[in-house]
């Protein structure tokens, strides 16, 4: 089960709203390589993972990804804090305002709502781990595109933190993959 802890994994303190930046960061909220997809992918795979090490790893990384959804949500909230309909008009975001007002929504930077097709589970541990490794690499690439666009350290630092987490997650999945493959051969 989950118990909510009233704190962020890493501090978010953005003093200046920036709708253009929020418009692209939203992709790591509900986009194809986003944190929601990551959290759901790993938590779902964990239930049926046969290897106890893999089950533990999937649950732990899924839990961490939920804390990343929260970080991204907090960045979006602070980046849009105090903005008006007029600001949304200038940023061509009236369609978004029409659907969601000033709320957040799980969608990509190209306005595609979150879809279950972003994640997969195919009933094979090595295949699932390959998907997980690819997902981490793709998320890392998207973070790099976002860091390229960031204008301040207040936005850049949490993105650099999140990017490195994708690197570490990739390494753990890769390690798990290598362990299972090696043990399979030894049998």
């Amino acid at each position: 089960m989950f118990e909510y802890e009233k704190r962020l994994a890493y501090p978010i303190k953005i003093s200046k709203p920036d709708l253009e930046m929020a418009k692209v960061i939203i992709s790591q909220y509900g986009g194809p390589q986003g944190e929601l997809a990551a959290a759901l992918r790993y938590l779902n795979q964990a239930h049926t993972a046969k290897d106890p090490r893999m089950k533990a790893l999937l649950v732990d990384i899924a839990t961490e990804e939920f804390s990343h959804i929260e970080m991204i949500a907090e960045m979006l909230t602070q980046l849009t804090k105090g903005l008006t309909i007029d600001d949304y008009r200038k940023a061509n975001m009236l369609p978004y305002y029409t659907e969601h007002g000033f709320d957040l929504y799980y969608e990509s930077s190209t306005n595609l709502p979150f879809r279950a097709e972003y994640i997969s589970a195919v009933g094979d541990e090595l295949a699932n781990l390959s998907e997980d490794m690819a997902a981490e690499q793709k998320a890392r690439a998207v973070y790099e595109h976002l860091i390229d666009q960031a204008k301040t350290d207040e936005v850049r630092m949490p993105l650099l933190f999140l990017r490195q987490r994708e690197v570490v997650h990739f390494n753990r999945f890769k390690e798990m993959f290598d362990i299972l493959e090696k043990e399979k051969k030894q049998k």
Binding site: K13, R156, M157, L160, Q164, R165, V167, V168, N171
Partner: peptide, 23 residues
């Protein structure tokens, strides 16, 4: 570790010339 998002020094991969700083 928190500044970098990384605990094992061997695993750290910086991006471009950006240097993560502690708030």
């Amino acid at each position: 570790a928190l500044t970098l998002g990384n605990t094992f020094p061997l695993e750290y991969e910086g991006y471009k010339n950006y240097v993560p700083t502690t708030p």
